[in-house]
Amino acid sequence: MSETSPVTDAIKQLPWPEQYQALADTAKAPVLAAFYQAGCVPAETPISRVPLVALDFETTGLDVDAHSIVSIGLVPFTLDGIQLGQAKHWVVRPRLPLHQESVTFHGITHADIHEAPDLSDILEDVFASLNGRIPVVHFRYIERPFLNTALKARLDEGIRFPVIDTMAIEAHLHPDRKPSFLQRLMGKRPVSIRLPDSRRRYGLPHYASHNALIDSIATAELLQAQIHHHFSPDTPIGDLWL
């Protein structure tokens, strides 16, 4: 038997709470076993009763196989409040070279990176904030796949969890984002579902800086606004996670 038994399709088919139970039994790394043991709320739980954590990564690029994580920001929250006292931010050393263009974007320099720990050194701290919470991200093709790949490289096993994607919610609310020629003539402009543009539609303030932490806070605020405008505190989490 190999070190890592790949997660079977049978397990992947299970509803999230049962899947977490099954994965808790098969996970080898203690941080992952603890993560799954902390459990997942049932799909019918009202969103107002779900512990959430907004999560944002800055990466060296968009390709999960060619790029890696540079920084992690997270903030635990619920529909009723975002606890800044528990907000966390880490810069980590990417295993792949830092591209010049992403350096200017994140404002993270080679010197910062040089002194930064490897992700494996801070995993326990990161999971302390993730355990028992449903992650919330804006654009779900970054945090989940990058964390999965990073963990595979370090622990020899990946991770599975549901996410709420505030961008997917905006995409759902604006199915006709790209106006036709005639609509453009009539002054209709395309609807952007990027984080700052989505926030503007709810009257949420503009944040001048860009880092993983403020973006995770921005995402948490956006989800609160989305729920209050388009859903309700009683909306089951199963309607929202992906």
Binding site: F77, G81, I82, L84, G85, L204, H228
Partner: peptide, 11 residues
């Protein structure tokens, strides 16, 4: 003060 804040969005 900043670290003690809890943010909430209300309609």
């Amino acid at each position: 003060l900043t670290a003690s804040i809890e943010i909430v969005y209300v309609r």
